[in-house]
Design a protein around this nucleic acid. Structure first.
Lengths: 198, 198
DNA sequence: GAGTAAGCGGAACCATGTCCCGTTTGACGA
DNA sequence: TCGTCAAACGGGACATGGTTCCGCTTACTC
């Protein structure tokens, strides 16, 4: 599952061995740089760290979003797969939703600048936004529907808005010790709860 | 109250008439550009619109934050002043808090890119962040304290976190019809409510 | 009306994203 | 093993946008 280029899917794999090696090297370099300088680090820095020219980055990852997606794909997948599992093992759907959102928040707040990149309307990041949505929105919707069906929460907020809200709340959560995104997200999810049956 | 340079405070007023005129012109131009291109619009665009050189902008407004603050100062002041008034005229402190937050959200979502600029950690925007905090945090704290004192909400969230949360939720609220920041903020404030006395 | 310094404009400089082009090199058939 | 050649490479060129510098203009003072 970690040799993403080989075989399945419509992704064409590079023919030359050095190309594949460079792609790996770039992924490692990018991951390292993202940790220290955030996901908006200069392209040249990543290229330098990997010991390649800038064009090589663009050849393998046409947009920055492609690079970010490639670096975090496994973790996003893991988050997506955790959804149904949580639903199955949690006492109630609302608890499952809360746990899953916590997972998502933990992922986001540890990736310097990722939450901001997700929400920015700069060109070139729609792909990133779209990827996250594509991968996580169905999971979120499933949890939300289950919680709504059980009557625990008000049924009138769609998954998209919840995901955006959570993502937004995570912006800048690192780099500001006074701000606790988990807390705020917790309040937001609490606000979802059905006041009571009248 | 609209000739901000004259007289009071420690703000030095430009001596020459053309300088004062240019400052006004720049404020008008910036306000117009902000509406169409957002608060991150290129400096050259604003200068061009005002018919001045770029250096003139930097002479009057050393950082972009200074310009943004100058453009929106009146509206921020109005929002700050509305706080105590709402507290006095609303049925309960929690209602006052909700109304005030709505006011703030309405302000933010109509200023393209302002919420994002407030939260970005790019250098040069700390001043902006600081100004908003300086002006609005005390008001928010007053409302929050009143609501906590009345027992309507849990008392353990400070005003800073609330403001950041609200600000964050407003990011990108324009430019995405599927996302309704007012709604999400409403849920957040609802989540603040005391569950019940046990 | 002349002197002077505040203020001005725009060119210059720097950082960064993006693209192009001449060169290198891995893959493969002879 | 060696020759061929297109894939892949590197780094320089270009575009954009923020910031600063410098020679010129002009509003104020006397």
């Amino acid at each position: 599952m970690d040799d993403s280029d080989r075989g399945a899917g419509q992704a064409a794999r590079p023919k030359r061995a050095d190309a594949r090696r460079n792609k790996e090297t770039l992924l490692d370099a990018a991951a390292a740089i993202f940790v220290t300088s955030g996901v908006e680090a200069p392209v040249r820095d990543i290229a330098a760290k990997a010991g390649v020219g800038t064009a090589t980055i663009y050849r393998h990852f046409p947009t920055r979003a492609d690079l970010i997606i490639a670096v975090y794909r496994h973790q996003v997948d893991a988050c997506a797969e955790a959804g149904p599992a949580l639903l199955a093992t949690s006492p109630t759907p609302h608890v499952a939703l809360g746990r899953w959102v916590d997972l998502f928040v933990d992922f986001l707040v540890t990736k310097h600048g990722l939450a901001a990149a997700l929400q920015t309307d700069n060109a070139g990041f729609e792909t990133l936004h779209a990827y996250f949505l594509d991968r996580l929105l169905p999971v979120c919707a499933q949890l939300l529907d289950a919680a709504a069906a059980s009557g625990e929460i008000r049924p009138d907020l769609n998954a998209y808005q919840l995901m955006r809200g959570v993502g937004n709340l995570c912006i800048g959560a690192d780099s500001d010790p006074r701000y606790d995104a988990r807390r705020l997200v917790g309040l937001l999810v609490a606000g979802l709860r059905q006041p009571r049956e009248p």
